[in-house]
Write a protein that binds this DNA or RNA. Structure first.
Lengths: 120, 120
DNA sequence: ATAAACCCTGACACCAGTGTCAGGGTCAAG
DNA sequence: CTTGACCCTGACACTGGTGTCAGGGTTTAT
C-alpha cells in the first residue's frame, strides 16, 4: 500500500509517517518510481508506535526496542522495563512540579480574593 | 548597577536579563558607553519576574501586567485574575493527561511482571 | 492528451527560554 | 600601556513532532 492509504488507515499524517521512517521506526520498500510501498504489517507497526508515543516515549526510545516487541511479546524485550520505570519517574517528577505550581496559583488566587473582600 | 551585578544579585543569567529586556519586561537606562544601568529597584523587578515565571506564565503574559503589579498590589491589577484562572485550567488539564499516562505505564509494568511470573 | 489526485525531497516555522560563540568596545589596576 | 575583567550586538543551537510550502515527478481516468 502507498503512504496515503497507510495514513488514512492509521490516522497518522503522511508527514509523520515519513518522520518515523527517518527516525528508523519503519522502513518501507521502494517502487521503481520512488514511491514507498508498505506491507500490510505496517498498519500494526504504526499502531504500535502510536501506543508508545502515547506513553510519553520519544521516537528515539521507541527505536531501541520496536523491532523486539514487533517480534516477541513486550515482556520479553529487556529494554522495555527500565525505560518504563524511568519514564514513570519522569512523570512523577513532573506531577510534583505541576502540583507545586498549582498550589501556588491557588494560594495567590485566594489571597487576591481575600484582599478584594477586605477592601470592600 | 551594571548587568553583571544584577545577574549576581538575582541569580538570573546575563543572557536572560537581556532577553527579558527584549520582551519588554525591564528597561534599564544606558550609559554613554552603551552599558546598561539598572536602578536599585531592578532587583525587585527581576525577583517579581522570576516569581511569575515560576507560576508557569510566559514572558509575554507577564509583560501584560508587570507594570501594574510593580506599582500597585497584585489584587488591583485586573489582568491578573483571569490569567491565573486560565493557567490553573491549563495545569489541571496537564495533570489529567500526566495521570492518565502514569496509570497506563503502571498497568503495563504490572502486566509485564505478571507475564514474567507466569513463565517461570 | 490533459486534469486531478497522488507521490517525492528539502526546507522553514513553531514553542520559549537559555547557552554559547564570534567579533569587538571599555574600563580599572598595575 | 598593557592585561584582565567587564560590557555590547547578533546569530546559531537546542527540544521534537508536526504543519506547510515550493518545486517537481507519476499515475489514472476521462
Amino acid at each position: 500500500m502507498k503512504i496515503g492509504e497507510l495514513a488514512e488507515r492509521t490516522g497518522v499524517s503522511i508527514r509523520s509517517l515519513r518522520y518515523y521512517e527517518r527516525q528508523g521506526l519503519i522502513t518501507p520498500l521502494r517502487k521503481a518510481n520512488g514511491y514507498r510501498e508498505y506491507s500490510a504489517l505496517a498498519v500494526e507497526t504504526v499502531e504500535t508506535i502510536k501506543l508508545y508515543l502515547n506513553l510519553g516515549l520519544s521516537t528515539e526510545e521507541i527505536a531501541g526496542f520496536l523491532n523486539c516487541v514487533l517480534m516477541k511479546k513486550e515482556a520479553f524485550c529487556a529494554e522495555v522495563m527500565p525505560l518504563y520505570r524511568s519514564k514513570l519517574e519522569d512523570i512523577e517528577r513532573q506531577l510534583l512540579q505541576l502540583n507545586q505550581i498549582k498550589s501556588n496559583l491557588e494560594e495567590r488566587i485566594a489571597s487576591i480574593q481575600q484582599e478584594q473582600k477586605e477592601s470592600e
